[in-house]
Design a protein around this nucleic acid. Sequence first.
DNA 1: TCTGGGGTCCTAGGACCC
DNA 2: TCTGGGGTCCTAGGACCC
Length: 432
Amino acid sequence: MFALVDCNNFYASCERVFNPKIKNTPIVVLSNNDGCVIARSNEAKALGIPMGEPAYKIQHLVNIHNIKVFSSNYTLYGDMSQRVMDTIKSVVDSVEVYSIDEAFVDLSSFQLFDIQDIALEIRQRVGQWVGIPVSVGMAPTKTLAKVANHMAKKQAIYNGICILESETEIQNALKLFPVGDVWGVGRKLSKHLQNAGITTAYELSMASDSWIKQNFTITGLKMVHELRGISCVPLEKMVPPKQSICTSRSFGKMVDDFETLAEAVSNFAARAAEKLRRQKSSANYVIVFVTTNRFRQDLKQYANQVVVNLPVASSLTSELIHYALIGLKSIFKEGFEYKKAGVIVSGIVPQDEIQTNLFDELDRERHEKIMCTMDLLNQKMGTDTVFISSQRNRKNNWKNRRELLSPSYTTNWNELPEAKASSDILPKKRIQ
DNA sequence: TCTGGGGTCCTAGGACCC
DNA sequence: TCTGGGGTCCTAGGACCC
């Protein structure tokens, strides 16, 4: 058996933990640049706010219903996620952190009659220790655990925990489960399946192997087997190193000059280099891309990208910035309003398996020491305490809009939550 | 006016090898 | 007239996930 532990309305729930005033008010959290709705509390869902809706389209609802709106605070969510995962790991051993708000658990070492208790314990402990509500779905495969989790969340009778175990239980659940909600079925597949007359997960599980394989390849076949209770997707306890790392942002304002773009790209490259060093790897090439605002069809459109090969695989900030800027120069065109740019590093190899270059003139050992020191300083004193000068060409007018940001309660000494207490005994004192 | 960011996997098709 | 067979590697693009 597998369990899927999923945080309810994760980002919205994070905002509530240190701000109990908004416990029962509708909350939405916006994407970067305060663009779209990416998380909603139950109250906000009940008001009919769809996922992914641009913020300006829900402004009237915000005003009428006094919805609390937040910019996304990934520092807070990342730290809360870590706490949730650590807490789950304190209950069970085999945990796969699947996403920022989800974890799979391998329950094969437990007796079947124990698993209800384990789910209860996880739910209770995460709730008490971290303050985030979670739902638990349990079933013989990961795909079915996803189904069970859905049910635990959607149907109040389950009280946050749903176990699908016997054949009948599973089939009855699948008969009521829309095929489009199955893990691995997206928009395209869903349409394709509907056209073939398959509307429920049960009907999908009954389709013939040959038809599935022909139409949906090996991935589809695995999915169908998982629905039948045959486990094809194992638990992955170890996180494999990333094969590509992307850092990109939409700009708060349109950008039309090279210098500003260069500063943005320098910062993206610096972030990518940090991520590389964190997973102890180096990249063989850097991709730089720029694009104008695709929603503004009244403006001239331009989008381009370029791959720059590095002489030696590298994770040195200064070197990655250097080559990223060479790339940017080659694709930059005057006369456009740029909205977004990004840097992708790829061709990633482990740090200790780098193919060196006979003609390489850089003293890499020395540079690596500098990077190490820089990372330590920035980790201790805050991001970009030390940075490469091209990261600060001019005013930061490309930066994201984040106008509704909550404090980083758990990661910044200056933004710790405050608890105020008063009593009749000490009427004039306020204790913080 | 305002529309996110970061990933993985799979396949088809071309280039190349013997 | 007729033009092999069996591979690998790479890339672009499309699908999916959160």
